[in-house]
């Protein structure tokens, strides 16, 4: 559960009803009674609160958004790779109307 809480990507929960819920876990409370986690489900508004006992399995299904984004990883890249990545990020921001 702690690994899922620390994970910077979406996970997929399988709950006792058999339903699968994909989303980003942003909070958990292991000392509450019953303990629960909170997530933002992907593609739906609002948040969900799911008691631990209802969770059968957790799969790390989304991309880890923090992976490979360190300063060191950036510096290790070739100049051409850095330029290409900077251009891609600027392009994405532009497409969203944020530049």
């Amino acid at each position: 559960m702690e690994l899922a809480f620390d994970y910077r990507g979406d996970v997929t929960l399988e709950v006792t009803s058999g339903e699968k819920i994909e989303g980003y876990i942003f909070n958990r409370n292991a000392v509450a009674s019953p303990p629960f986690l909170q997530l933002f489900p992907k593609g739906q508004p609002g948040e969900m609160k799911i008691p631990y006992p209802d969770i059968v399995a957790i799969a790390f299904t989304g991309e880890d958004t923090a992976s490979g984004r360190s300063w060191e990883a950036w510096v290790r890249k070739k100049e051409s790779e850095r330029k290409a990545e900077a251009a891609r990020i600027a392009g994405e921001a532009q497409a969203r109307g944020h530049l």
Binding site: Y24, K42, G62, R69, A73, W74, V75
Partner: peptide, 13 residues
């Protein structure tokens, strides 16, 4: 609209 390497605030789905 930036993605500074090492920034801990923007790494989300």
């Amino acid at each position: 609209n930036l993605a500074c390497a090492g920034c801990g605030k923007i790494q989300y789905p």
